[in-house]
């Protein structure tokens, strides 16, 4: 869980397994079923890493053998917020860990006139300000839409240190830009890519995640 050289970034352990999973999803020749399956596996690891950061309180339970066991339980409520459309691919991974989790949506699209991201739609739980929020978006390239989405959350009263931004791939530029705006949001990721090309795509990246997950 190294955070070097970034603060407040959880990079999941770069094991053979994880690197092998990334090789599969980055390869353009990977079939869609495989892309979905192996992306889902990485998403699961991201969600689990995110859950590790939630606070717990001491709890005593009684075991089958009628003994007291000093354990812990999660405090507070969580919710997921996905950035439509690609972020929705990560909802199932969250649901697989937290069955009845509430999931809000934020739709941000590039405005054709200004070429800037524009908020089109948001639907969030009413009590979101009391919750820990898992913000879901698979790629952090320039950070434009993630910053806008986080801004929506903060305006709704969510505390920045209670937001966890989960993505599969990010860039150094994206992390810097995002953290310049929200230094207290923890980024949970599995890969930090070299940089961005002239079109602001990640290098090497894996193509358009939403297209590969939903369309092609």
């Amino acid at each position: 869980m190294s955070t070097e050289p970034f603060k407040n970034v959880s990079l999941i352990a770069q094991s053979n397994q994880l690197l092998g999973l990334y090789t599969i999803i980055r390869d353009k020749n990977t079939s869609r079923p495989d892309f979905i399956f192996y992306s889902d596996r990485i998403i699961r690891l991201l969600v689990e890493e995110g859950l590790n950061h939630l606070p717990v309180k001491e709890t005593i339970v009684e075991t089958e053998t009628n003994e007291k066991f000093d354990g812990v339980s999660f405090m507070g409520k969580i919710c997921g917020v996905s950035i439509v459309r690609a972020g929705e691919s990560m909802e199932q991974g969250l649901r697989d860990c937290c069955r009845s989790v509430r999931i809000g949506k934020i739709l941000i699209q590039r405005d054709e006139e200004t070429a800037l991201p524009k908020l089109f739609y948001e639907k969030l739980p009413d009590d979101i300000s009391e919750r820990y929020v898992f913000l879901l978006d698979p790629m952090l390239a320039t950070g434009g839409s993630a910053i806008m989405a986080t801004d929506v959350l903060i305006k709704r009263g969510v505390k920045p240190e209670r937001i966890f931004f989960l993505n599969l791939i990010c860039s150094k530029e994206g992390i810097d830009k995002y953290h310049a705006a929200f230094p207290d949001v923890r980024i949970v990721t599995g890969a930090v890519d070299k940089g961005l090309d002239e079109n602001k795509y990640l290098i090497p990246g894996l193509g358009d995640f939403g297209d590969r997950y939903y369309c092609i």
Partner: peptide, 22 residues
């Protein structure tokens, strides 16, 4: 996590970037 590496391969991403020793 420490599954043995089968081989190192060169792959291409959909955007045409090449990754060596993946």
């Amino acid at each position: 996590n420490d599954i043995p590496i089968k081989e190192l391969v060169t792959i291409e991403t959909p955007e045409g970037n090449t990754i060596n020793d993946a």
